[in-house]
Design a binder for these strands. Structure first.
Length: 150
DNA sequence: GCCAACGTTGGC
DNA sequence: GCCAACGTTGGC
């Protein structure tokens, strides 16, 4: 069982939106490495830290879990969608998504600034590979973060 | 709004 | 398959 960190811009879709909806398809991933992880590595029941980017205080803000496995992202076929990809086809979809279920909104979100400061987080992809939108989180960091953000 | 880092595209 | 040009991300 792996743990993950999914990034989102709260102006587009926030942890509050996820809480309200309960469950959502994590649409709009348009990066091959992130896509490959969703398709090949993310498993039913995996836990996911939700991270807010491009906002006043970028931070890890909550917890969700994966429901089911990867499926084609319908937005790639919708010309009206900002995630539309004319090079994709129904026969051979290029992009996938996973569905996630809200579990928790943290009482004490963990700001990126803090993650960067502490040596225990040195190896986190959030520090070393900030732009990757689907990140793997090691077990120890994951447990530490959940415990201290509650 | 700037810009560094990094991903993608396409000509050759 | 290289690499220059270009586009995107995201912190600041």
């Amino acid at each position: 069982m792996n743990h993950w960190l999914f990034k989102t811009e709260p102006d587009t879709y926030s942890i509050d939106d996820l809480r309200r909806e309960g469950r959502c398809g994590w649409e709009g991933i348009r990066n091959y490495q992130a896509r490959n992880r969703l398709r090949d590595e993310v498993q039913d029941g995996d836990q996911v830290l939700i991270y807010h980017s491009s906002c006043p205080v970028p931070a890890i803000v909550g917890l969700a879990c994966v429901v089911g496995t990867a499926r084609p992202d319908p937005t790639q076929f919708n010309p009206e969608s900002p995630y539309y990809d004319p090079k994709s086809s129904l026969d051979n979809p290029r992009w996938v998504l996973v569905d996630i279920q809200w579990q928790e909104t943290f009482a004490k979100p963990l700001p990126l600034k803090q993650v960067k400061t502490e040596t225990r987080f040195r190896e986190m992809e959030l520090v070393s590979r900030g732009r990757l939108s689907i990140q793997e989180v090691d077990d120890q960091s994951f447990r530490h973060i959940v415990a201290r953000c509650r």
